[in-house]
Simulated assay, not measured.
Amino acid sequence: MRIEHRIVVLGAGYTGMMCAIRLARRTRRGGAAITVVNPSDRFTERLRMHQVAAAQELAVHRIPDLLAGTGITFLRGRAVAIDPERREVAIDGSRSIAYDTLVYALGSSADTRAVPGADRHAYTLDDPRTAGRFATRLGELAATGGAVTVCGAGLTGVEAAAEIAESHPGLRVTLIGRHEPGAMMGAKGRAYLHRSLERLGVTLRVGAAITKVLPDAVELAGGESVPSDACLWTTGVRVSPLAAEAGIAVDEHGLIVVDATLRSRSHPEIHAIGDAAAVHQAWGRIHGTCQSGMPTAAHTADVIARQLRGKAGKPFRFGYVHQPVSLGRHDAVIQFTHADDTPRRWCLTGKRAVAYKEMVSGSPLKAYRLSKRVTVGMSLSKGGRATRKAA
């Protein structure tokens, strides 16, 4: 009787789903048994959580439905511990699953521990439930008017502030951040983003360090308080502690240290992808986005498939292409970039940018469906000549 190679994928976000579905196709002739482990059977479209926060109805996608026809087993449960010596994962404390190869795709969440009170008084966009609770709170405030603070002026914070201001024009929305919104963009794209936020009535507090989140205010360095009837926390990220607790080598941020093929340097039978991996290219370290995460997932699926055929995995190469930012449902800006994510001169704005952003947001689900039948190219750029050298 042929013994199948047991592959366990922890996490069914953008990267875990991509890796599992692609791997199922690459090993469809047998030899591998793939199991995906996730706490919920609902697939979370993280790229659209700001829409959920603004009480917009989105389609519900179930993970078993997305995996239908692939032969992948879905196990609903939360991974609570990894035993690399026994090659087992404890699920919810009472179950366990053995693996020969483990794909670690647990992603990241908002770091509400960094500032006192954020964990108790701020909402996040980590999943549909938390975003939905925030939407309910906004609905309550909209009836009488109120103040909403969005903490973190990165692209997630910008999208959330714009969406809230457009959906609830009676609310006073303040975007608070250490850095200028759109700081990573070129001058033209950044100016457009600022004009759009001004048009929507969003107040900017730039260069402000948040020191505490209270039930009715956000405190800034220097003692100033910004009134806040609802606070959304979008600044800082943290990753699952499971890898570090298991003795898997991680960096100072808790990300798994990987080699050029995205295998753990301390435990080669473990592959890390997306936000969970410390991925370096010659031009620098990749930061966690769907744009970079999906290619790491596809690459890892290919590496594992090659290994099962007795072949060596190839080095991962990647370069950024764009920074897509929605500014409500009717506006957007797309900043095109060099491979290292620094801005090019060209950006796209207005209705064409809206269509572009919608294409980007909807592309993962389309890629999953297509990947059941054909091998889909996931990297728009491999980073040019610089990434041909070892990082």
Rank of each mutant, 00 (worst) to 15 (best):
G313A: 09
A230T: 03
K314Q: 14
D111G: 06
A221L: 07
M49N: 09
G319E: 05
G170T: 13
V213N: 03
T27S: 12
G288C: 11
R388D: 13
R86I: 01
G182F: 06
G328I: 00
S266A: 09
K212A: 15
A135P: 03
V213K: 02
K382N: 07
F336C: 00
F134Y: 14
V279Q: 03
K351V: 05
R190C: 06
G16M: 04
D83E: 14
R263L: 06
I72V: 13
P128S: 10
A298G: 14
T70D: 10
G146S: 03
V8C: 03
D341F: 07
G186I: 10
A386H: 08
A332I: 06
G16K: 01
A98I: 01
A20R: 01
R42T: 07
G284D: 13
L204H: 05
C151H: 04
M1N: 11
A59E: 15
V218D: 00
V376F: 07
H179D: 15
F336S: 00
G328Q: 01
A332S: 12
K366P: 00
K372H: 10
R263Y: 05
H280P: 00
T349N: 03
H5E: 14
V36F: 03
T300E: 08
T337S: 11
S371D: 10
R78Q: 14
A54Y: 05
A209W: 01
I334F: 07
S225H: 12
E252D: 15
R369W: 10
G77T: 02
L380Q: 13
D216S: 02
D83M: 02
G313S: 11
R352W: 15
K382I: 04
R76E: 14
G177H: 01
A297L: 08
A244M: 03
A260K: 08
L155I: 14
M294T: 10
R28Q: 15
